[in-house]
Computed example of a mutant assay.
Amino acid sequence: MTLTSIRTRAETPAATRASAAKVYTPYSGWFYLPSAIIYGVLFIVPTFASLYFSLTRWSLFESKFIGLENFKLFFSEPQLVKGFTNTLIFAVVTSGSKVVLGLLLAVLLTSQIVARGYLRSVVFFPVLVSTIGVGITFTVLMNPDHGLINGGLSALGIDGPGWLTDPKYALLSVAAVDIWKGVGLATLIYIAGIVSIPREYLEAARVDGASSWETFRRIVLPLSRPATVTVIILSLIGGLRSFELIWAMTRGGPGFTSDVIASVIYKQYQAGFYGLSTAGNVVLFIAVTAIVLPLSYFLNRKEVDL
Score class of each variant (00 low, 15 high):
L51A: 02
L88W: 09
V129K: 09
P26D: 00
S121T: 10
L202H: 06
G83S: 04
A176R: 07
G238P: 00
K64D: 05
G272M: 00
V292Y: 04
G117D: 13
L105H: 09
I246N: 02
M1Q: 14
G102R: 09
I136Y: 11
Y274N: 13
V107C: 07
Y24N: 13
V93W: 11
V304F: 09
G184Q: 04
A15I: 13
F75V: 05
S296M: 05
G157D: 10
L164D: 03
F65R: 03
Q270Y: 04
T250C: 02
Y27Q: 15
T228W: 01
G152E: 10
K22F: 11
V41Y: 03
G135V: 05
E11A: 15
I113Q: 02
A155P: 12
I197W: 15
T12R: 13
L188V: 11
L156M: 15
A279Q: 02
L128S: 06
L128W: 09
G147C: 02
V99D: 07
T230Q: 14
V122Y: 09
S173V: 06
P144H: 00
I286C: 03
E203D: 11
L164H: 10
I132K: 08
Y169S: 14
T230L: 15
S5F: 08
D259G: 11
G255M: 08
S28A: 11
P294N: 03
V174Q: 02
S95H: 09
I89C: 01
A290H: 12
L164F: 03
R116S: 08
Q270C: 03
Y266F: 15
Y201D: 10
R301L: 11
G239C: 03
F273I: 12
L60Q: 12
G135S: 12
S211G: 11
N143M: 00
I38P: 06
I291G: 06
K267L: 02
L153M: 12
L284T: 00
I232G: 13
L60G: 07
R218D: 15
G152V: 04
A287Y: 06
I136G: 03
E244D: 15
E69R: 12
Q112C: 01
A290Y: 00
T4K: 13
A18S: 13
I132Q: 07
P126Y: 04
V23Q: 06
S196N: 03
